[in-house]
Amino acid sequence: MKTAAGTKVLVTGAAMGLGKSFAQRAVAERAADVVLWDINEEALKETAAELAAQGSSRVHHYVVDVSDRDAIAEAGAAVRAEVGDIDVLINNAGIVRGNGYFWETTNKVDIDKTMAINSLAPMYVTLEFLPAMVSGKRESRVMTIASSAGLVSNPRMSVYAASKWAALGWSDSVRLELEQSGNDHVKFTTVCPTYINTGMFDGAKGFLFTPILEPDHVVDTSWNEMKKGAALVVMPWTSRLNRAITGLLPLKVRDFYLNSVGVYHSMDEFKGRK
């Protein structure tokens, strides 16, 4: 897929941040339809109006709480009826809650919401559109924004890490299922960046050779690799190194290394978006 021109693109968490940037990429490449899902109605309307004003794509927006599987099913049916089958799906919606140790968790709803939005939502959203992608035989793409937290354990973000491990394991497994079943026209891409400068991880610290990533770099790299059909996008290079080390070194040596370079203390002063 060299371009999104003429395709139908759906982005979750599209009102702001990375999601808005992905939607902008789709409009810039003249996608036929760009579908925006978000729970923030006010920001969603503003983004939809901004993109529609560019005039190169039909822009549709739906207020959807992706932590609610019934809401996903209802919105999925509406999109299929009003827009048609989706060619490119960007599972971008995500949250991070809390900055303490797991046993300090006082609001158990945060656990449910984190797992529902980061882990289950990509599955339920994809299930709304993947069967038609498979049967339609058109070149199609599904990209899921996971995290480097899905590659390496990290203190003070245990629930978030668990949710992203799940997203990575699911997405990469479906990729293999598509290859195994001969449905190579549908490509799954899983993106695992470190902390991104969107406000979501305010207070988190970069570590050795690993600065906080800029959103445009993440979006540009992810978007281009998705079109190529890349299976896994890990950024920056230090995350790829840490992943390799995790698989090669004895556990105690790995822990000593990741603690020494700052990975295990990167969430010590995390505040997050208010």
Rank of each mutant, 00 (worst) to 15 (best):
S56C: 06
A52T: 15
M267V: 10
M235S: 03
W103Y: 11
D202G: 05
N154S: 08
F102W: 15
D87H: 08
L258G: 00
K8S: 14
W237L: 05
W223V: 07
M143N: 12
K137R: 09
I145H: 12
D85L: 03
A31T: 02
V66L: 03
K8I: 07
M143F: 09
V186W: 03
I212L: 12
V219P: 03
V159M: 13
G94M: 04
Y101D: 03
P250D: 01
Y160W: 15
M123D: 03
A75S: 11
L127T: 04
M200L: 13
E82R: 15
A53W: 09
K227P: 00
A71G: 10
V186I: 07
S266Q: 01
A5K: 15
K271P: 15
M226V: 15
R138W: 02
L18E: 07
V59G: 04
K252M: 07
M123K: 08
L251A: 14
L127Y: 13
A15W: 02
E29W: 13
F201W: 04
V191M: 13
H217F: 12
K271H: 11
P236D: 00
K187M: 14
S140R: 01
D65G: 12
S57F: 00
A244W: 12
E74P: 05
F201I: 07
V218N: 00
A23Q: 04
R69E: 10
V96S: 15
L178D: 03
T114A: 02
V134K: 14
K187I: 06
G136Y: 11
N92E: 04
A230V: 15
E41K: 15
E41F: 01
V66G: 02
T190M: 12
K8E: 05
R30G: 11
